[in-house]
């Protein structure tokens, strides 16, 4: 009697266990889909001299135009001035043929260049510093 029950119950157990796994798989797929849609914060930011901070995402256009990701209103900056994109694990800056040019640590940007921490970017006359958001946060929030 017990043997018969146990032998049939084993298929029920396997089905239940796999149903449990299937449910978690659904949640996993939904999670991945949600993550893909939202712009991803790269953990880096640009810091302007006046203290204005711009977090960087996967793709960021910088310029005077209203539809730029980072809008800087300055007469020396072109409407589409520069582009910062994520390549692998690092961020790359390129100039978008701007009138006054872009400079990385004093050198003119001609082809796409990799950004390192504490790099100084000069767009027109505006100076921006490339930082990890975390190091920036550490300065004004102490414990984080």
């Amino acid at each position: 009697m017990f043997e018969l029950l146990a032998r049939s119950a084993k298929y029920i157990f396997i089905c239940l266990i796999y149903y449990f796994l299937l449910n978690f798989l659904k949640i996993m797929v939904a999670d991945l889909r949600k993550d893909k849609d939202k712009p991803q914060d790269t953990g880096f930011c640009l810091l302007e001299d006046n203290g204005q901070k711009y977090p960087l995402f996967n793709i960021n256009t910088i310029g005077r135009a209203e539809d730029s990701d980072i809008i800087i209103n300055d007469p020396f900056i072109s409407s589409k001035h520069a582009l910062i994109t994520k390549k692998g694990s690092s961020l790359v800056i390129q100039d978008l043929h701007s009138t006054n040019g872009s400079f990385l640590n004093g050198k003119k940007i001609k082809r796409p260049m990799k950004l390192k921490e504490d790099d100084e970017i000069l767009l027109g006359t505006k100076k921006l510093t490339f930082l990890r958001s975390e190091t920036f946060g550490a300065k004004d929030r102490g414990y984080l």
């Binding site: 119950a9 157990f13 239940l16 449990f20 449910n23 949640i27």
Partner: peptide, 19 residues
């Protein structure tokens, strides 16, 4: 889905303890 899974966990327990 989470509620369903916690119920499934309980169901497996009930079946196994009856057996």
């Amino acid at each position: 889905i989470y509620n369903k899974n916690i119920a499934l966990t309980a169901l497996i327990g009930i079946l196994a303890s009856l057996l």
